[in-house]
Computed example of a mutant assay.
Amino acid sequence: MSFKGDHLKDEGSRLQVTAAGATAGLISRFIIAPLDVVKIRLQLQTHSLSDPLSTRDLQGGPIYKGTLPTLRHILRHEGIPGLWKGNVPAELLYVCYSAVQFATYRTTTQLLHGALGPETLPQSAESFIAGAVGGAAATAATYPLDLLRTRFAAQGNDKVYTSLARAIAQIHREEGPRGFFRGLGPGLAQIVPYMGVFFAVYETLRPHLSGLELPFSSGGAVAGTVASVLAKTGTFPLDLVRKRIQVQGPTRGRYVHKNIPEYYGGTVGAVRTILRNEGFRGLYRGLTVSLVKAAPASAVTMWTYERALRFYTGLGQRREESW
């Protein structure tokens, strides 16, 4: 099923789709980097201002309360560079992730069309399957970069890792190859329903919004925002568990939050520990900033993707004409 000539699954070659996805991820990541750092700090925080914790429990770690106070705290104690901690692995992550995601999404759709026919599956089901497969493939392929991004964003002025190369060497030496994949289980468990719901909602809303006068003259930006908010809220606890597991290991007590618990029993064990120690709301720490981040990130990603793809396809057509 195609929505005229600008449908993201049918337009452009594989190389053009990959390049457009990488461009979208690069720009989106840089814009929302400060909010991403705040989200990670809040997700790793196991206490709030209302908790009766002593200085010994905090071990000198900060207490963050809300998005803006956390931003101010980071600026005051770590400066502007503190808001872009982990940006190098994060940029690599977003570029590679977006490229793999969009390319796999397009390829999966074409395989479904070839195996079942283009009109066999409902649009929502087709988008869910393609989105889930694309998200899972991108998550698995880029997961070490995601773990590195989290660890850099979690460290304060007392640096655990001084550079990306040294971080890779240290993790490999102290934790082995498996250390780069801590939390992959909840990561995959989260991304499959997240991307499936995201693309299903996006593809459902986009054709209806494309003819309206919207910000940036793009129905894709608004559709991407709505899709991201719905998908993020439903899968947020798994994202939080992934972050908590990513900072396990020999460096667990050296990050800005020095009282991160040690979790056993994988994803299920971590969820049980959080529920027991922090209650149900403990699974949603950082949700507000996550939603604030998700809206502009998805809008910028989809808006940039559509225009980058249009640019690359136009460039390809001009080259063919010149030949």
Rank of each mutant, 00 (worst) to 15 (best):
F3Q: 15
D6S: 13
S13H: 09
G25E: 07
P34L: 02
L35W: 02
V38N: 09
I40W: 13
R41G: 06
L44I: 01
Q45M: 07
H47P: 09
L49F: 10
T55G: 12
T67W: 04
T67P: 00
L71P: 15
G86Y: 00
P89F: 03
L92N: 02
L92Q: 00
Y94H: 12
V95F: 02
Y97Q: 13
Y105P: 05
G117I: 12
G117E: 13
P122A: 06
Q123E: 15
I129T: 13
G134Y: 02
A136M: 02
P144Y: 03
F152C: 11
F152R: 15
Q155P: 03
S163H: 09
R166K: 15
R166S: 15
A167C: 03
F180Y: 04
G183K: 05
G183S: 05
G183F: 00
L184N: 08
P186Q: 11
L188E: 08
P193T: 11
Y194G: 02
M195N: 13
V201H: 07
V201F: 10
Y202K: 09
P207W: 04
P207K: 06
H208Y: 09
L209S: 01
L214K: 13
S217M: 02
G224P: 02
A227S: 04
P237A: 09
R244F: 12
V247C: 01
Q248P: 10
G249F: 05
G249L: 03
Y255E: 03
V256T: 05
K258R: 14
E262H: 06
G266Q: 14
G269L: 10
V271L: 02
E278Q: 06
R281E: 07
Y284G: 03
G286M: 08
L287S: 06
A297F: 00
V300P: 10
W303T: 14
E306Y: 11
A308T: 09
G314Y: 11
E320F: 10
